[in-house]
Structure formats: structure tokens, C-alpha cells
Nucleic acid binder design. Structure first.
Lengths: 158, 158
DNA sequence: AAAGATTGAATTATCAATCTTG
DNA sequence: CAAGATTGATAATTCAATCTTT
């Protein structure tokens, strides 16, 4: 254990590994920025809108509990609430009470939300292809290895 | 060309490709969040601080023009200026005039900046290893293919 | 008290406009 | 006017505290 961080000490990274990491974060930033720019140029909202609406549409009855959306979208709980707020304001989502649990709330996809997903997808797909899938080629599928990474909470917060 | 986006039309993505993209963005978010959390737990500032200081230290004389920093760090020009502002405030960087061009400014690494880099690196390295390099294994080096992706400006913003 | 969700205050990021020098 | 850098106003993100229901 490292006395500063309480984390296990690991062997030094190779320079290839470090270069891989830098490629990874740079590629992520460039690709998402480029896609967001293409979306904005088409008069469409940002990538994150798509991700949230898509997660909700993927649910059986096209609605999810707020907490369930949080599992799909990586964003702080507060940030998610604020984002949903904006989506509801624009009429893309609708809030519904949860029968049997008056604490909770559903967010349900509206017709406008469905429509927006259809409009955004061609731009999004094109971006994934151009900025990501083409340059990476067959190795793309290897990235699914990263799905396994478990991030445990470091310490309980009080 | 798509009439909405002015972008070339591409063939549909395979489901493997789409899954690879989702793994990519999820892994990025989880890894950077986990590393930032580990840094915060050690009383250290966020990842982005490291990236900026590291880019500057990598320069021959440990200083860079503001515009040169912008080439290394993916952030809006304004965002970069604000970030540098904070770094200067904390004494990690120092501003210096550029001889022969009174428009420009250098940002130069201070002793405190060097020291902070040394303190952050073990935590950062450990995070790259745990959350990224280990699960990806040998495939990691293939990510360097992404370095080639050129993102051209869409239109002039007149 | 714990779970689910929201709000207020502070920090950070962004766009458009500005200032200064070449 | 163009290049380099910064500022003001605005929007988004986060932490801590809060509210309601179980």
C-alpha cells in the first residue's frame, strides 16, 4: 500500500502503455467534440441528450426511474437531475408518478423525444464511423474488454 | 452528402461497432472519474491539472506559449485561459513575457508545479494501470491508431 | 434511520465580444 | 485586418444540505 493514497503499489507503466492511455483520452475528447460540433451544425442538441433518450427508449415501456437512468448515463446524481429537467422543459421527456412508491418518479419518452432520436442518429452514426470506427478498424471490438472494469467506491463518505 | 448535415453518408454501423463505441465512452468516463476520485482522496487536484503541467514540463525549457498549451490539452481556448489562471493563482505556473512579441505570454512551470507533478504521478499511474491497462492488456497499443484521426473544422464561423 | 429525488451555493466551461500588438 | 490572449455574460456541473416517503 502507498502511504499517501492507500492504494496498492503497481509496477511502472511501459511507455507503450502510457502512449496508449494518452491516445485513448485524446481520441475520446476529439471524437466527442467533433460529433457535438456536427450535431450543433445541424441544429441539434448535444450527445448527452441522445444517450439519455436512447437509454429510456431501450426500456421495455419507454420509461425509467431516475435512478435507473443514472446507471446508464455517467453523470453525478445532481447533474442527471438537472439534465432531465432540461429534457422535460423541451418536451422530450415527461414525468410520471410511480404507483406504489410516492418517493419515486418515472421519466418517459414523448413523441418529440422519439422524433429527436431519429433526427440525431444519422449525424451521430456518421461521427462514430468517421472519427472512431474507421481509424480503429477490427480492434474496435477489443474495447469490450473494458466493460469488465469494476470501480469500487473508495471510502464511505461519512 | 446528407442534406441536413452536409456530411458524407456512411453505411450503417454494425452492432459490434456500436457496442465498441459504447464501451469506449463508458470506459473513459469510469476511468477518469475513478482516477479523479483517487486523486481527491489523496488531497490532490484533478487530472486536468496534471495534463497541463505535464505538457509544459515536456517542453525544452519547461515553458510554453498559451497557444501551444492549447494544442496539447483539449479544452476551449477560453476554458484553457481560465484553467491557467487557477494554476498561476496556486503558484504552479508563472507567466512570463515573450521577448519580441508583446502580444504573447509564456506559462512556465514553477518549483511547486514540479513538486505537484511528482506527488500526483503515483496516483495517476496506479489508476491508469488498474482501470485501463490491466483490463485492456496487449490491445492497448492498438489505440495509437486513433492518433491519426484528423478533425477538420466544419465551416468557418465568420 | 435509509431510500429516492431535488434544491442552493459555488465551481467550472462555453460563446461572443473585446483589447492589444503585429 | 489578422494573431494572440483575455474578459463578461451565460450555461452546465458539482458538493452539501434538504425534503418526502418508506
Amino acid at each position: 500500500m502507498c502511504i499517501y493514497t492507500n492504494l496498492p503499489i503497481v509496477r511502472s507503466l511501459s511507455s507503450e502503455q502510457l502512449a496508449g492511455w494518452r491516445s485513448f483520452i485524446n481520441a475520446h475528447d476529439r471524437a466527442t467534440r467533433a460529433i457535438n460540433r456536427d450535431l450543433a451544425a445541424a441544429g441539434l442538441p448535444e450527445l448527452r441528450y441522445y444517450d439519455v433518450l436512447w437509454a429510456i427508449r431501450s426500456a421495455g415501456d419507454k420509461r425509467l426511474r431516475v435512478g435507473e437512468v443514472a446507471e446508464h448515463v455517467i453523470l453525478s446524481r445532481t447533474g442527471l437531475v438537472r439534465l432531465l429537467e432540461r429534457l422535460v422543459e423541451r418536451g422530450l421527456l415527461e414525468k410520471q408518478p410511480v404507483p406504489g412508491d410516492r418517493r419515486g418518479a418515472y421519466v418517459a419518452l414523448t413523441q418529440e423525444g422519439e422524433q429527436l432520436l431519429r433526427e440525431m442518429w444519422p449525424v451521430y452514426r456518421s461521427g462514430i464511423q468517421r472519427y472512431f470506427a474507421q481509424p480503429l478498424g477490427q480492434w474496435m471490438t477489443q474495447l469490450r474488454r473494458l466493460d469488465k472494469v469494476a470501480i469500487e467506491p473508495e471510502v464511505s463518505r461519512s
